[in-house]
Design a binder for these strands. Structure first.
Lengths: 263, 263
DNA sequence: ACCCGCTTTTGAACATGTTCAAGGTCGGCT
DNA sequence: AGCCGACCTTGAACATGTTCAAAAGCGGGT
């Protein structure tokens, strides 16, 4: 559990932040390394090829040899840029998060009702992720490993989560519910709504209905309930229970998922 | 996603129900097959050996070759009894569920307060699972695969879940809370509490504190909140929201997790 | 005793993720 | 030009889960 971290690894760092179309024109005369751009390009080719093959054949059926061959490089070269096969998934993760945030923002424009905004954000995720549902299960298995850096919670260095949480902050802030809420609670909500998305994702992964219609219905049904619970939270009677829930979330949930926004 | 199910597999069926000490003395002159007991014994030896090695070295570090060698059989023979390496995990799963139910029942004896009973049941699970925490992560990754028959929800043929749900029914029924609850809600609760356990398990898998102290604290803090929410549910004001939540659970949660008790 | 068919067992072969020592490329320095 | 060192690239070798055709028990019918 504490080993296997000292081989030739330690390469394949950073990047993975670009949605996929980067060509490294930026920072022409960078820090201290020449950075011909050639290297970045090789990396990009490998990633693009992998993502395409994953989508065409699924994760398990896509071999590293096939990726290397299609990308026109050697197997070892792929490993020079990506620590393991799993790390190639990161590409999807980042791209999806980016696309989702963009799409949801557009769709929410003009909508004020919190429940509606939340539903839009979640449905938007389902639409964005739709084309990957086929092999999402295999990808999910990997993401569930706490030791993997691909785990949605835990493991720092995940700007994707920050992007997603920011989106949910927008869901809340742009709604008519925001001004009515307790400030402290409002502070926790973006992370909590992201957690709601994680639950939806879990549901979605297991969903085998056509077009994941069941998950969509689940979203349509659960968002109004969530909205209603939040709406009620400001009444006096609930003061104590809201306090409990808040501290529970603050002390035990957020610290575990990477405290994106907490101070 | 729909293939690889027609090879030499289809063996390695049933069983996996015994906590581990079965020797097949029962049913001496069984149905139609001789069933020397030899076969069952080989299977048992392989399973026991595998479980021991998993515990000693972890899941990934235990090779099928090592299991076979230690068990004194050939690799192929292990595959004759177990469809894959993952299926060996089932042994743990079943044993733990059994031990947990037994231990929790004893510990709850005499305790009436619902919150206390729930806490006992959950802490009991943590104690039962403690020795496996080391390699639980690796096991968890497998369990997260919707296509795997080891997934805690979905995939029928899991008596373990029924056992666990029955335990939580006992948690509720033996408490002072039971008579105060709406009958319909009470019917859903066992499954819901089992879901609570699943959340705790998720938390536990990611928990790296000594003796998983953080998870224990999480349990101690979350059970009173759960109890309070349930206690409140019988008041009139909440009628509508309870109704919403109930139908949400009934229509979307339970059917997905294998409707252990629903009718 | 012998053969038949079934279950059980074997071990070599296969597939695929991963490693690694060796070599190649390239920009700059002398 | 020629060399240096860092960065890239290669492909064979390795580790391990899995398959499969063949062989080895084994029980009963003749």
């Amino acid at each position: 559990m504490e080993d296997a971290k000292n081989q030739s690894a330690a390469r394949a760092t950073g990047s993975a932040t670009e949605p996929g179309l980067g060509l490294a024109d930026e920072l022409p005369g960078g820090r201290a390394r020449p950075k011909t751009g050639k290297s970045e390009q090789t990396r990009a080719v490998i990633l693009e090829t992998a993502m395409r093959l994953f989508q065409e054949r699924g994760y398990d059926k896509t071999t590293m040899r096939a990726i290397a061959q299609e990308a026109g490089v050697s197997v070892g070269n792929a490993y020079y840029y990506f620590e393991s096969k799993e790390f190639l998934i990161q590409g999807f993760y980042d791209r999806m998060t980016h696309d989702h945030a963009e799409d949801a923002t557009v769709r929410m424009r003009g909508v004020k009702d919190f429940s509606d905004r939340l539903e839009i954000a979640l449905i938007s995720w389902l639409d964005t992720a739709a084309e990957y549902h086929e092999f999402a299960a295999q990808f999910f298995r990997t993401a569930a490993d706490p030791d993997s850096s691909l785990s949605p919670f835990s493991n720092e260095s995940h700007p994707a989560r920050a992007t997603a949480v920011a989106l949910f902050r927008e869901v809340l802030d742009g709604s008519d519910l925001a001004p009515k809420l307790d400030a402290e609670l409002a502070e926790l909500l973006p992370d909590l709504l992201w957690l709601h998305l994680m639950v939806v994702v879990l549901y979605w992964v297991f969903d085998r209905t056509p077009d994941t219609e069941r998950t969509r219905e689940f979203v349509r049904r659960s968002t109004p309930v969530a909205a209603r619970v939040l709406g009620l939270s400001r009444y006096r009677v609930f003061r104590p229970i809201v306090r409990d829930a808040k501290s529970l979330i603050q002390d035990f949930i957020l610290p575990t998922i990477g405290r994106t926004a907490v101070k």
